[in-house]
């Protein structure tokens, strides 16, 4: 029992292999409305559009095709959506939250359409927060994606400063210009050489 006699935190359990029809039914073609999707943009959302895509890799470097990735980010001006204002609830605007499974892309990628976020505070570098779920993950994993073309901001970011210097590059996505627009490619390595930094937050 925790303080005050109430039960403590409910333990995490794995999302398992069959989450798709519950959490991302539209993406996988199941007949249930999607509360959350992979496209965070709408005609009323301002800012430069980007793609954020990558694979989730296991200890052998094999793509995990039954992972779920969620993202949370500020808008292009660095504002986080709140219930009271920007994009909260069903109001128009930027909701800042998206979800994509890795089981529908031929390369087992997650593919998000979003805007490039602004910095949430002075001294912070623009970033997207990620949550990774999969069969074999008893707890979801918190990580972040920073942008390689923001080198000066990244060098000053207080969170990156808490990451061992030789592991910071696991949190940085390179920008590629493509006919479909700017793409940030970011693979997440769950275990082994080049293992992505995951946070206890």
């Amino acid at each position: 029992m925790a303080d005050g006699g109430f039960p403590g935190q409910t333990p995490s359990q794995t999302v398992g292999p069959f989450f798709a029809y519950g959490l991302v039914p539209g993406q996988y073609g199941y007949p249930l409305p999607d509360p959350v999707g992979a496209d965070l943009t709408g005609s009323d959302v301002a800012g430069p559009r980007i793609w954020l895509t990558g694979r989730v890799l296991d200890a052998d470097g094999a793509p995990v095709d039954d992972a779920l990735v969620e993202i949370w980010q500020a808008d292009a001006d660095g504002r986080l959506p709140t219930r009271a204002g920007l994009g909260g609830g069903n109001r128009p605007g930027f909701r800042g939250f998206g979800r994509c499974g890795t089981g529908t892309d031929p390369e087992s990628r997650f593919v998000f359409r979003t805007v490039k976020p602004g910095a949430v505070a002075a001294g912070a570098a623009p970033h997207v927060s990620l949550v990774v779920f999969a069969r074999g993950l008893l707890n979801h994993l918190f990580t972040r994606v920073y942008f390689a073309d923001e080198a000066a901001a990244n060098a000053a970011d207080p969170v990156l400063a808490q990451v061992p210097a030789d592991r910071r590059e696991t949190l940085t996505a390179e920008r590629q210009e493509t006919p479909d627009g700017a793409v940030y490619r970011h693979d997440i390595r769950l275990q082994g050489p080049g293992e992505t930094v995951f946070f206890d937050l």
Binding site: T14, R135, L137, R167, E195
Partner: peptide, 16 residues
């Protein structure tokens, strides 16, 4: 739980 062997991170989580 076998799937954790290849998928659970081997490095400690970085505290924030």
């Amino acid at each position: 739980y076998k799937s954790t062997r290849q998928r659970g991170p081997g490095q400690p989580l970085v505290p924030l």
